[in-house]
């Protein structure tokens, strides 16, 4: 990597990433219910960590370690939506309700008929 430019790019990426992480955690505190908080955590949080890892990759410049950092980015991008999706599904099926200001709930109408077939929700 070119010494001068690499430093500036890496520094900028790291600062932007840290600011995204900060906004994600502010969102985690301010948003009203679990589903909206998940938006903040899964988007801004992931982008923040990814930008910081990319900044590290740019700064290192040695191919093996940089590739490892990029593999970390890829891994984060693959797993973040899966865990968010799973947690949302789990919270919904366990009966955590949405915030009172929510405007529509298409899933609510179907979930009761579906529950009979769900092996996890049995009347034991």
């Amino acid at each position: 990597m070119i010494d001068g430019v690499g430093n500036y790019v890496a520094g900028t990426l790291v600062v932007i990433g840290a600011l995204f992480a900060l906004t994600a955690s502010i969102g985690l505190l301010r948003l009203p219910d679990i589903y909206t908080r998940m938006h903040a955590a899964s988007k801004a949080g992931t982008v923040g960590s990814c930008l910081m890892l990319i900044g590290l990759a740019v700064h290192i410049g040695e191919s093996a370690t940089a590739l490892r950092a990029l593999a970390g980015v890829l891994f984060l991008l693959l797993t973040a939506p899966i865990s968010a999706h799973l947690l949302a599904k789990a919270a919904y099926s366990a009966g955590y309700r949405m915030w009172g200001g929510s405007v529509s709930d298409d899933l609510g109408a179907t979930v009761h008929s579906a529950k009979k077939n769900d092996p996890l929700v049995t009347d034991r």
């Binding site: 985690l28 910081m52 890892l53 947690l87």
Partner: peptide
């Protein structure tokens, strides 16, 4: 206040920690 909230926050804590480690490494 609920369990999923805490799980989500712990997940977020891990993501932030990854960023922290990246900056530390840099």
């Amino acid at each position: 206040p609920s369990l999923p909230d805490r799980i989500l926050a712990l997940d977020m804590l891990v993501a932030v920690a990854i960023g922290f480690i990246a900056v530390l490494g840099l």
